[in-house]
């Protein structure tokens, strides 16, 4: 594809790729939030987070398999099943994330920083192999339950499908709910306090272990929601999606300033836009290189990420 391909209306084309990029970016954002929140509270890069996301998608796939759904059928039954999958994946990933913290990270809470970090890498590999055992080495088809038809007219210049709507409809309310939770609830306030200074928070009577568990639960739950959304949007899952999406999401969190919630969302949206616009204006095979090139450039000029230094609170 030539650079700046000749198209009928360049602005409509641009808009189309912006829509695609934002959709993909908001999916990355859900995963990136888990990295950034955990880092904000315990200063640990939870490398296993992407793999929790991957296992969530296999939970959903297993449910579809048990019910025997392979393709779209009765819309009401499909909708009920999708909701059930969301609930199951959210509960599963949240619980799994708490369990990982309790069993592996908690005993290392006061150990040198590298000890939990290396343990996190170990957990990631264990989960990868669980996924390999569960789903096999190859790409697995995830049932295509949502219509691919354009919500506008089929002949419209801009394409926006039920799948894109679903991604936005899942991610935006979740992100709003998270903001409300962190800003306005007492547990949310406790989280922000723990992020700023865990010792002082503890002296003020905050049970920091509860706060940490809540953080892992929320991060896991968001990954669970993201996993089903991903399955329904991309329609393919494999044990490798944990590593690949985890890498992008982690990059998004670093890009936005790790530990900063709006930063993670911003970083994810930028990555989504770069992959989408890069695919069209530069070339499909350069998209991942482009993402990391932009990461490097931004980190050179703003080492703490886009929003990292501006706000002091980490959660």
């Amino acid at each position: 594809m030539p650079l700046f391909a000749d198209t009928p209306d360049p602005w409509l084309t641009l808009l189309q790729y912006v829509i695609l990029g934002l959709t993909k970016g908001s999916l990355f954002a859900l995963i990136a939030l888990g990295y950034t929140m955990v880092y904000g509270i315990v200063e640990l890069i939870n490398f296993a987070h992407g793999n929790v996301f991957m296992l969530g998608s296999f939970v959903a796939l297993t449910i579809f398999g048990l019910v025997g759904v392979e393709k779209a059928g009765d819309p009401f039954q499909d909708a009920a099943l999708i909701v059930a999958c969301f609930v199951a994946a959210i509960v599963f990933c949240g619980t799994l994330n708490i369990a990982v913290d309790r069993v592996i990270y908690k005993p290392l809470r006061n150990a040198p920083k590298l000890a939990p970090l290396v343990s996190a890498i170990g957990v990631a590999y264990i989960f990868d192999n669980v996924g390999l055992f569960w789903g096999g080495p190859q790409d697995v088809n995830f049932p295509n339950l949502l219509p691919d038809a354009n919500l506008f007219d089929e002949t419209a210049k801009i394409r926006f499908t039920a799948k894109d709507l679903m991604v936005v409809g899942v991610t935006v309310p979740l992100m709003l709910a998270l903001t409300v939770f962190v800003k306005f609830t007492s547990l949310g306030t406790a989280m922000r306090a723990t992020a700023q200074n865990p010792v002082a928070a503890q002296l003020m009577g905050i049970n920091t272990e509860t706060v940490i568990a809540t953080t892992f639960a929320i991060g896991g739950a968001l990954a669970g929601a993201a996993s089903v959304t991903y399955g329904l949007y991309v329609n393919t899952i494999s044990y490798q999606i944990g590593f690949q999406n985890g890498l992008y999401a982690f990059t998004a969190a670093v890009l936005g300033g790790i530990g900063n919630i709006p930063g993670a969302v911003l970083g994810a949206l930028i990555i989504g836009l770069v992959t989408s616009l890069g695919s069209f204006y530069v070339g499909e095979r350069w998209t991942s290189a482009l993402v990391f090139a932009i990461l490097i450039v931004i980190l050179v000029f703003r080492p703490s990420g886009l929003l990292g230094s501006r706000t002091r609170e980490k959660v």
């Binding site: 695609l20 993909k24 999406n245 069209f280």
Partner: peptide, 22 residues
């Protein structure tokens, strides 16, 4: 009409296919 290489590590190709469809 055109020839491109894909990154086989990428997970989905909606932007690419949008361009090809045009």
């Amino acid at each position: 009409l055109g020839h491109q290489s894909i990154d086989s590590k990428a997970q989905e190709f909606t932007p690419l296919m949008t361009a090809i469809k045009a």
